[in-house]
């Protein structure tokens, strides 16, 4: 479980996070949604330790991250996997080497054991055939899948995904969403997804946190999101004519 307690962050006098509180349960896909500039990425970066918050705390299964000795913090970080918006694969390494990287860096496993684990992870994301290719030789969707394989190479307990569908076509987006869902349930991982992809929210989300101008305005299940009374959230959700029409259709269907 991940607990976020009173997270505040300012950049050059501008308050970007205004005291975010949230709890993210294991085995569930927890989504942080909000318009661009709402503080989603800063929240995630504070949670993984890339940005130090001004106030507040982040606890991983009760263990606080900030104020810990660098060695202790490293241990927690090794339990965290992250899928970046750009996949962030190392250009100079092949797909195989990218996935093997954390194993070679943090474990003393023999190369044979590393090979088995890498092959298993690549098989899991259906990319065994691309193992000897370089990131520049594979598609954006495949890069995201390699990113997932690299994230699960170590026995992670927490998975962060920063806009996993950005730049992907709808079909590939669904593939990535389902893969994240399967992995979350299979390994009982606490997954936090930062997105504004409405399809992902309804397709795989278990819990949604809505951020607006650095503050948490709403939290709940995706099924409840349509009936929310928060005007900012309604504006955000119904910005898409497709969803607005679908909702009106649903309402008229209920009346009938």
């Amino acid at each position: 479980m991940i607990e976020v307690i009173g997270l505040r962050k300012s950049f050059e006098g501008t308050e970007v996070l205004k005291g975010i509180d949230a709890r993210f349960e294991p085995g569930k896909i927890n989504m942080i949604i909000g318009a661009s500039g709402s503080g989603k990425t800063v929240t995630i970066k504070c949670m993984v330790g890339l940005i130090e918050p001004d106030h507040g705390d982040v606890r991983y299964s009760g263990r606080t991250v900030y104020g810990l000795h660098i060695k202790e913090r490293k241990k927690i970080r090794q339990e965290i996997g992250m899928l970046f918006q750009s996949a962030a694969l190392f250009d100079s390494m092949t797909v195989y080497e990218n996935v093997a990287f954390p194993l070679r860096m943090f474990t003393h496993q023999p190369e044979k054991q590393i090979k088995e684990r890498v092959e298993f992870c690549l098989e899991r994301v259906e990319l065994s055939r691309a193992s000897q290719k370089f990131p520049s030789e594979i598609s954006g969707g495949m890069q995201k899948r390699v990113g997932i394989a690299r994230a699960i190479a170590m026995d992670i307990k927490y998975l962060y995904c920063d806009e996993p569908n950005s730049g992907l076509d709808p079909v590939t987006s669904i593939v990535i969403d389902r893969l994240i869902k399967e992995i979350t349930v299979e390994y009982n991982i606490t997954t936090v997804v930062n997105t504004h992809d409405m399809n992902s929210i309804f397709e795989v989300g278990d819990n949604v946190v809505y951020l607006h101008k650095g503050a948490k305005l709403w939290e709940g299940h995706p099924n409840e999101i349509m009936d929310s009374e928060v005007p900012e959230l309604r504006d955000f959700i119904f910005a898409s004519p497709f969803i607005r029409n679908a909702y009106q259709h649903k309402l008229s269907f209920k009346k009938d």
Partner: peptide, 9 residues
């Protein structure tokens, strides 16, 4: 990619 390294520990 540097962020990815930092997140990994």
């Amino acid at each position: 990619q540097i962020d990815a390294l930092d997140v990994m520990g």
